[in-house]
C-alpha cells in the first residue's frame, strides 16, 4: 500500500468517533430547524454551507425570530471567531506547500472536533518519530482528507434525515443521544491530562471560567474562557519555557 493510502485510511479510522458524534447532533439540528418553521432548504444550507455546530443552532433561532441580516452576520462573526485561533494553531501542524484547493478544503471542514483529533494525531506522530526531520512531524494531507470528509458527509446526510423525519420522531431521547459530542471531547481531553498533569490547570481554568462567565456572556463564553485557559496554561508551565519541548 502506498504511503498516502495508509495515511488516508488512518484518517478514515480516526474520523469514526467524530461521525458518531455528528450524526445525532445534525439529525437534531434538522428537526429543530424545521420545527421552528424554517424551510427545509434554509436548514439544509446552514448545515452544508456554514457547517459550524453551535452557530447553526443560534442561526435557526434568530432566523425564525426574524432577526435582521446585520445582527445575524455579526453574531456569526463573534461566535465563530474562535475558528480564527483554531486555524492559527492548526496551520502550524500542516505540511508546507499545500495547494490552494487543499488549504481551502481543509479550512472549510475544520471543526473543533476535527481540530482536536488531528492535534492528538500530530502529537502521536511527534512522539513516535522523536527528533527526525521536521517535515515528518506534520500532518499528511491524505490523513486530513480521510479525517475531514466523513464528518462533513455525515453532517449532510443526518441533517437531511432530520429535516425529512421532523414530526415523526419521538424527540425525548435526542438530548441523551447528543451527549455523544461531549463524550468525544472528554475522551480527547482526559488522556492529555493524564500524560501531562499540568494540562489539568489549563483544563480547569478554561472550564471554570466558562462555568462562571456563561450566565453573563452567553454565546461569547467559549471565546473568553478559551483565552483565559490558554493564558493560565502559560503560567502553569512558565518554569520550563526554555526546554523547548513541544507541548501538546
Amino acid at each position: 500500500m502506498k504511503e498516502y493510502e495508509i495515511d488516508f485510511r488512518k484518517g478514515l479510522a480516526d474520523s469514526l468517533p467524530i461521525v458518531a458524534g455528528f450524526i445525532p447532533a445534525c439529525f437534531t439540528f434538522g428537526i429543530v430547524g424545521t420545527s421552528l418553521g424554517l424551510s427545509g432548504m434554509a436548514v439544509f444550507l446552514l448545515s452544508a454551507w456554514v457547517f459550524a455546530g453551535a452557530s447553526q443552532f443560534i442561526a435557526v433561532k434568530l432566523l425564525a425570530a426574524g432577526s435582521s441580516a446585520p445582527v445575524l452576520l455579526l453574531i456569526t462573526l463573534i461566535v465563530n471567531l474562535r475558528y480564527l485561533f483554531i486555524g492559527v494553531s492548526f496551520a502550524g501542524k500542516l505540511k508546507q506547500g499545500l495547494s490552494l484547493p487543499a488549504k481551502l478544503g481543509i479550512g472549510f471542514t475544520l471543526t473543533e472536533e476535527v481540530y482536536a483529533v488531528a492535534m492528538a494525531r500530530a502529537s502521536a506522530i511527534q512522539g513516535n518519530e522523536g527528533k527526525q526531520a521536521d517535515v515528518k512531524k506534520k500532518l499528511p494531507p491524505a490523513y486530513l482528507a480521510g479525517l475531514q470528509f466523513p464528518p462533513y458527509a455525515a453532517n449532510l446526510l443526518a441533517t437531511g434525515a432530520g429535516i425529512s423525519l421532523a414530526g415523526y420522531v419521538p424527540s425525548m431521547y435526542l438530548p441523551a443521544l447528543n451527549t455523544s459530542l461531549y463524550a468525544l471531547l472528554i475522551a480527547l481531553v482526559v488522556p492529555q491530562i493524564l500524560r501531562k498533569p499540568t494540562h489539568l490547570g489549563t483544563c480547569l481554568s478554561a472550564a471554570g471560567s466558562s462555568w462562571l462567565l456563561h450566565p453573563y456572556l452567553g454565546d461569547l463564553t467559549v471565546l473568553a474562557a478559551m483565552s483565559i485557559g490558554m493564558i493560565a496554561g502559560m503560567f502553569f508551565r512558565s518554569g520550563r519555557l526554555q526546554t523547548g519541548e513541544e507541548y501538546i
Binding site: 474562535r82 485561533f85 461531549y182 481531553v189 494540562h199 490558554m230
Partner: peptide, 25 residues
C-alpha cells in the same frame, strides 16, 4: 506558539463545561 499549544485543551474544556449540563433541558 507556546500559547497556542494550550488552545486545544482550553477550547475543549470551555465547550464541555457548562454545555454538557445543558444538553437535556
Amino acid at each position: 506558539r507556546l500559547l497556542l499549544d494550550h488552545l486545544p485543551i482550553a477550547v475543549m474544556s470551555a465547550l464541555i463545561i457548562p454545555g454538557i449540563t445543558q444538553v437535556d433541558p
